[in-house]
């Protein structure tokens, strides 16, 4: 997993609530057996018309936001399907952090598996960033160690994050490797359960 420490990047405003994972990456891109290359499907129906031409009005198609590294979005971002293709597509496009008032649970989890930072801020702070991101200077800075977001005008907002998740994100740790260090505890649990609930064995 990619580590996340700090980021200075252009922020793109996406002022809609309930942006679901079907919008982030539609179904036709889920048929891949690879993780890479999903940027082409990111926000496909927002970005392209039926002939596959770019829709100039969509924020990520505008020259000022083409290299955005941060999305500022409405409430409940990432709801819907569990597809990890959503964070894969965002990262493949170059988005490294998403700021919203809230995230759907499974998407939030999936972000931390991939080094994509979901930042939860208060409604008025998200609105402020949304407004500033529409302006000429729309570079925000995110410092994970300090748990802060600095707006283009220099306002600093702090955010909460689970300390374990933060630590893993800062180092880009592999969760499986870490869990396998507890293999003997898993062995013990399994032998205990095999005795207590024998009908589950050999199912």
């Amino acid at each position: 997993m990619q580590a996340f420490t700090r980021l200075d990047a252009q922020a793109a405003p996406l002022p809609l609530a309930n942006i679901d994972t079907d919008q982030i990456i539609p179904k036709q891109f889920l048929k891949t057996v690879e993780r890479a290359g999903l940027a082409k499907g990111l926000f496909y129906e927002y970005r392209f018309d039926e002939q596959g031409r770019e829709k100039p009005e969509f924020v990520l198609n505008q020259p000022a936001y083409k290299n955005a590294g941060v999305l500022v979005a409405g409430d409940n971002f990432g709801c819907g399907s569990s597809r990890e293709h959503a964070p894969w597509a965002l990262m493949d496009f170059g988005i490294k952090a998403v700021i919203s008032t809230s995230f759907a649970d499974i998407f939030y989890n999936n972000c931390f598996q991939n080094g994509l930072l979901p930042v939860v801020l208060k409604a008025e702070q998200v609105q402020q960033l949304m407004d500033e991101a529409r302006g000429g200077n729309h570079v925000v800075s995110i410092d994970l160690e300090a748990q802060s977001v600095t707006s283009p005008s220099g306002q600093v907002f702090t955010f909460e994050i689970d300390p374990k998740r933060k630590a893993k994100m800062l180092k880009g740790l592999d969760a499986i490797g870490e869990t396998l260090e507890a293999a003997s505890a898993i062995d013990t649990y399994e032998s205990k359960v095999a005795l207590a609930r024998p009908w589950l064995e050999g199912a």
């Binding site: 569990s82 990890e84 499974i106 598996q113 991939n114 689970d162 969760a175 499986i176 869990t179 396998l180």
Partner: peptide
């Protein structure tokens, strides 16, 4: 019972466990 992402699928395949809060 709940849904998980692909990284967690890999985690469960390898460890038969999930890290959860």
């Amino acid at each position: 019972a709940h849904g998980i992402g692909t990284s967690e699928v890999e985690h469960v395949l390898a460890t038969q466990t999930l890290r959860q809060t």
